[in-house]
Design a protein around this nucleic acid. Sequence first.
RNA 1: GCCCCCGUAGCUCAGGGGAUAGAGCGCCGGCCUCCGGAGCCGGGCGCGCAGGUUCGAAUCCUGCCGGGGGCACCA
Length: 539
Amino acid sequence: MINVKEHISQLIAEAVGQLGWDEAGTEYELTEAVRPEFGDFTTNFAMVAAKSLGQSPRQIATDLAGAIAGLTSRYVDDVEVAGPGFINFRCSLEWLYEEIRLAVTMGAASYARSNLGKGQSLLLEFVSANPTGPLHVGNGWWASYGDALGRLLRFVGYEVSTEYYVNDTGGQIRQLGESMLAVMEGREVPEGGYRGEYVRTMAERYRGERDVTAIGKFAADEIIKVIRLSLEELGIEFDTWYSQASIEESGAVDHVISVLERQGFIEEVEGQKLFLSTRFGDSRDRYLTKPNGDFTYLAGDIAYHYDKLVVRGFEHVIDIFGADHQGQVPSLFAAVEAFGCERSRLEILLGQMVSLQQGGEKVKFSKRKGNVVDLAELVELIGASAVRLLSLQSSIDRASTIDIEQVTTKSMENPVYYIQYAHARMAAIERMRKERKIPEPKLGEADLTLLVHPRELELLRVQARLDEVIANAAVERAPHKLVGWLKDFAGAFHGFYHDCSILGEGPEITAARLLLVDSSRVAIQVVLGLLGVHAPEQM
RNA sequence: GCCCCCGUAGCUCAGGGGAUAGAGCGCCGGCCUCCGGAGCCGGGCGCGCAGGUUCGAAUCCUGCCGGGGGCACCA
């Protein structure tokens, strides 16, 4: 079994050689044709090489197409020049049937896998919301993104660990403790404190000492349990939960500061440690300690990254931040460089802000009751699959607005049903096959060349794109491209299902179509799995 | 003031150097004696503005306009 595109690339290389052109380094593209009359694949070779060959694109294309046509190929039926100098390849349908064989023999566990990552170890940190309250819908959006990205990178051959960095120390936790103490003593919650219902609930359950630090720790631990649970309900589990407090207690922060000091990147200013991050392109130097001697947040974060890159030694580290944290990006990169790591080993992905509205009205992410801003509530309402697919539809580079009303009441706007329905139909066909006692088709016996209906071919074409879609989504850290593929694929399947009777047109065509359905099912399961969306047997 | 992201159809968003820019929703019409109609088919003078690079720009560069987010010894 071969990859047609590689095959065509070889033909091009061979033809170029025959023509005596020295164009080995030409960065041309070989892409799927955008329209049927352009064949199956297209290359822009002639346009790209025009300058260095000193000939017109049309002339180059004509010569090259002629040379390629002289080569024998099992897959390429026809080569022609079109437009400004495109070379279009028309292929026999065999390459599409190969896709069925691949999918059916490999199954959902290995079909479309690759080894782009070459086993590189990678730490993916995401969500990391402060344990001062339950997760809101916005957290869930990025959580789905991070989880899908992790699955995707694992699928293409990275050795991925996922991690949640727990900010279980510092001012916000103290604030949380003070808010709870105030509730317990019947006082007004202090300015800037936490006043959600959950604070009251925890206060009622607390039995320990009336000490702000102890209470804060208790509360953070309780909230982490809640967070963990709502993530699990979304289908997300982390390999590790990494405690900020533990880093500070272990002396790792002191250690990393001494590392920076030895390199001469720390200056003492009135007893405070100042990291000279401007030397590494930051817009200002950053304090690592406060006047009272406490570490700043950045100090802990630097120690945390030192731990990831140096102590634990991950080859590559990805952080997913909200755009509201972009300010810390230059400082972190400065620190990474200062403690002696290649900048490129750290990758920070910024998700643009997620906001909520309810029937046109903006809704604040307040922790008050009433609005469905709580992630767990939304998951309960529309299900994990719907939440995940909804959040994975668009790029994280775009600030998105979630309309609670639209998402919850007019759920037809959610493509999850359309996509899952395609899978449920595939499963239904299999049930019907058994019910009608139609024999299970065998790859070696069935005649796949019976699959010539435009709907069948369209379905296979979409499926054949999957490799590239996955690779692209992984490289661009863009799992939403998988959703785009799913929509196309589900659409192609529904069209096929509508126009082609699978079980009713005689045993030969039935066998071929059943294999096509099997193949489709493998493909869709792979992608649903990457997104963490359930593939239902029936709906 | 400086930095990051985004302006694509009425709305929500894909496409991010290639040949005629797409989908969903909404709106208007069709399609079930037949494997699930949560489906299928048809209906669309839309890339914020102005320059530039290129054989070719929605896509890359510059400027402007508009929206979001940053610019802490907070987290």
